[in-house]
């Protein structure tokens, strides 16, 4: 393939833009004390935080799939009043400061919250300071990524395949599970992975809604933040771990599903 010639100004600006993303990563790599990497990574608190992060982010992704896919389907397929408003509300956490999201969650699901007070008085369930609270905070912040990806997939798919399935006698649920879902597979996968990666990196909503306690609510990003105050080097290493995981996910995603150039 012939290479496109790059206008000089575009080239300079693009290179500066790229450097803006690469330099911070470089900073982490250069400043990390590689000799202590193993020690930092195997510290009990780190292992616990990593384990909790994985469990919570994967749970958040599963929950996002269960509720997000039907929501995306409704947004893509059903016309109703207030659809745009509802869609905006469900994607709001993407642009909301996560701390604000955490406060909002407290006001709804906290011990004195709209739903939370009822949960507490009826079932004795309180969500703040629990791992469930972490999962909720992560789901709140990450699910919008799944919703918009899946909705875009649903909108761009050829709906005539669904019609073909109906002419073959398939009922709505069969059409959805056997035709629609497989056909939007790539979007579904991409959405789930983006959602997971976002959940893994969640900080603000988690610390606000679920607090911070090792093994229960202290996820990797929280551990990194707290280590920054005491042990810079260890926090650099953990930051790198998070960064490498996310980078791996995004690169793999691009290759596997978005097609590589």
């Amino acid at each position: 393939m012939r290479r496109e010639r790059v206008p000089i100004a575009v080239g300079i600006l693009a290179a500066s833009g790229a450097a803006f993303f690469i330099l911070p990563l470089l900073g982490l790599i250069v400043r990390s004390p590689w000799g202590d990497a193993i020690k930092a990574l195997t510290a009990p608190d780190t292992v616990e935080a990593l384990k909790l992060s994985l469990v919570a982010s994967l749970s958040a992704t599963v929950i996002a799939l269960v509720f997000g896919v039907p929501l995306a389907w409704v947004f893509a397929r059903v016309e109703f009043r207030g659809r745009n408003l509802l869609r905006a509300l469900t994607t709001l956490p993407m642009v909301l400061p996560p701390v604000v999201g955490g406060i909002a969650l407290l006001l709804a699901f906290g011990r004195r919250g709209l739903v939370g007070s009822w949960l507490d008085s009826t079932f004795g369930i309180t969500l703040p300071f629990t791992t469930a609270g972490v999962v909720m905070a992560e789901t709140f912040v990450a699910m919008p990524f799944l919703i918009i990806t899946v909705e875009a997939g649903l909108r761009s798919m050829d709906r005539r395949y669904e019609e073909a399935a109906r002419t073959l006698g398939a009922k709505r649920w069969t059409v959805f599970t056997r035709v629609t879902l497989p056909l939007i597979g790539p979007s579904l996968f991409a959405g789930a992975v983006l959602c997971w990666a976002r959940a893994l990196g969640e900080f603000g909503a988690t610390i606000t809604f679920a607090g911070n306690f090792p093994g229960v609510t202290q996820t990797m990003p929280l551990a990194v933040y707290l280590l920054l105050g005491t042990d810079h080097e260890a926090s650099y290493i953990l930051s790198l771990v998070l960064l490498v995981i996310s980078l791996g996910v995004l690169v793999a995603l691009r290759h596997r599903w978005l097609g590589s150039a």
Binding site: L107, G110, R111, R112, I207, F213, Q218, L226
Partner: peptide, 20 residues
């Protein structure tokens, strides 16, 4: 403790909100 907050202000605000 149920949580180790990052500063005194967040401890106070969680008490104010009734979470702790």
């Amino acid at each position: 403790p149920k949580s180790l907050e990052t500063d005194v202000k967040s401890v106070v605000s969680k008490i104010e909100l009734g979470e702790a």
